[in-house]
């Protein structure tokens, strides 16, 4: 089967019905997307399917056929960070950073849908993402920064 990840077409094996997360990490060596819970409850595995953030851990790879998949690795273009990544880097958000990919992908998807979300809208959109180090206030600041740049 063929899937399209970060603008490139890949041929993948789907006979064992892998999740999208397993395909990305093991077949395509895109390990930026993380496993955190396996039940879509933590957000560590968020990727975008046609711009919508989805948990790759419960998404069958076959269901992604014909869709444009964007992972954390696809945000940087021509060596230039995505403005949201830029904001997260400048705000020096993270401690262990294992949640970083999922947080950033979720934030990018949010700002693409809504360039100027309110605080409550940000919280609503991000609530599915867990940071066990609890850097939530810093993440909020980074999203605010990215938002104001976009505006």
């Amino acid at each position: 089967m063929k899937i399209n990840v970060n603008g490139k077409s890949h041929t993948i094996k789907v006979s064992a019905n892998p999740t999208l997360l397993e395909v990305l990490r093991e077949q395509l060596e895109l390990t930026g997307t993380k496993y955190g819970c396996g039940e879509a409850a933590c957000g560590a595995c968020k990727v975008m399917l046609d711009g919508t953030p989805v948990p790759a851990c419960i998404t069958p790879a076959v269901s992604a056929q014909g869709k444009e998949i964007t992972t954390i690795e696809g945000l940087e273009k021509d060596g230039k960070l995505h403005p949201v990544q830029e904001a997260f880097l400048e705000e020096d958000v993270f401690q262990c950073a294992y949640c970083a990919s999922g947080m950033i992908v979720s934030a990018v998807a949010l700002l693409e849908r809504n360039a100027n979300p309110s605080r409550d809208q940000i919280i609503e959109a991000m609530n599915g993402n867990i940071c066990r180090c609890c850097t939530y206030p810093q993440i909020m600041e980074a999203i605010d920064k990215a938002k104001s740049r976009k505006a």
Binding site: T31, I72, Q85, D92, A97, A100, I104
Partner: peptide
């Protein structure tokens, strides 16, 4: 700022699970 900060926000840092 965090040393190697960029490798974390680009998904490049290799954790053991990776």
């Amino acid at each position: 700022p965090k040393v190697n900060g960029k490798s974390y926000i680009t998904g490049r840092h290799v954790y053991v699970s990776d």
